[in-house]
Design a protein around this nucleic acid. Structure first.
Lengths: 226, 226
DNA sequence: GGAATGATGCGGCCAGCGCCGAAGCGTTAC
DNA sequence: GTAACGCTTCGGCGCTGGCCGCATCATTCC
């Protein structure tokens, strides 16, 4: 009883377009200020402030003050996964024409890991090389995969068995690599300067070093025909 | 742009208490009539009809006419997973006192698999016996586990590698067994008559045969102290 | 055919909520 | 100190949307 109302109240928070825009803007895991989020949601700062208060109250966001700025970010990975699962539903629906930018299709972040053609290409390479097994239900990194990741500088952690969470890509409709392994891989690619975030979009830019690096290490052309 | 509005519209569908009640009532995968759902949502049939129309229009439900009845069920497993992930968020939040029935804590269905103490106990047995490895990120059935399941009559499918999706239990806070394997296991337990659905609740009843069977096969007491 | 039942359509009521303008508070910059 | 900036609170407007009573249609039972 009470928890169903709680479910509904959480969902109602996501149900307003302005708040949905705010959450999606934060979906890549960054922390943004109230003003930036107001811009992202296409509302005035006052209105955004109200929404942010509700989202914070609802436990979906965390906030930290820094001088006269307030930085907001998603409260946890489970919030990101919730957004992900809703996007999965919006996508399994009538094949509505996708009018988003081509940049988002190529490469984007999905909270803490990589998605789009880049994410799928990475996962494909690892699978083809026998480093990874992935299905819709789960996945696992092999011994050779663990060595490969370690050599690449993306050690996923100390646990003996390294499972991964697959994440169905809404643009490519193929699973890509999420979970600890996906996060470590994405983090390393940022560190190497292979990919860079862009302003005002979740789309990622593959740098010149990145194109060379992905070709050399992972054997695919990260320009995706551009 | 357009897909964010779509996300918001889906979330708005879940954001109304009456619709949330309808979806949760359908969460165990059964098909229910419009009247039953009106009762579950605590609204009149007219109101429920409106809600069902919206949910159907939004692609969250499927409907089939049978005589003068209309049976509704969740449109897909991805809808169930969406609900699951929202429940996960509602639960990772302030440790609000749980006022639900004790029956639900013991055994319930989670769309197509088993949850509650029963679900966790099953997963624990399989893990202790070396039949299953499960973490928060993923899981896998071992060769011995595959043989065990086959012998039990719950063959999960022909694929060489059998991964499982873990599902964080909101009452036990431990992962239990979802995905194809979880569904096959639950299905077999129903077939054997070990568990039975109850009216007007997602809670399951463990039958006398079930208590004997779970004790013999899985080595735990399925009465859970009752 | 007639009555009962399940489901839907319509009209009207009303609460709730999103929105912005104006004003207030706190911090930073000069 | 003064000004600029970021953010929040308050108040009022306007509209969406949930709810039910009543009526209608379709199906089944007798």
């Amino acid at each position: 009883m009470s928890d169903i109302n709680h479910l509904a109240s959480i969902a109602a928070l996501l149900g307003d377009p302005a708040r949905a825009n705010i959450l999606v803007a934060l979906f890549d895991g960054r922390a943004l200020t109230a003003k930036e989020l107001a811009y992202a949601a296409h509302v005035t700062p006052q209105t955004a402030s109200g929404h942010l208060g509700k989202l914070f109250e609802g436990g979906l966001l965390t906030m930290e003050k820094q001088g006269r700025h307030r930085y907001f970010r998603l409260a946890s990975a489970s919030v990101a996964q919730m957004l992900e699962s809703i996007m999965a539903v919006t996508d399994t629906q009538p094949p509505r024409p996708w009018r988003g930018g081509e940049g988002l299709r190529n490469a984007r972040t999905c909270y803490d890991h990589l998605a789009g053609r880049l994410g799928v290409a990475l996962a494909s390479f690892l699978m083809d090389a026998g480093h990874l097994v992935l299905s819709s239900d789960g996945g696992e990194v092999s011994a050779s995969g663990l060595a490969f990741l370690r050599d690449f500088g993306a050690e996923p952690g100390p646990s003996k068995r390294v499972f991964c969470r697959p994440c169905l890509d809404w643009s490519e409709r193929r699973p890509h690599l999420a979970g600890r392994v996906g996060a470590a891989l994405a983090c390393r690619c940022f560190d190497l300067g292979w990919i860079r975030r862009q302003r005002d979009t979740r789309a990622l830019a593959v740098t010149a070093e990145g194109r060379v690096g992905f070709q050399a290490r992972f054997g695919f052309d990260a320009s995706f025909g551009q």
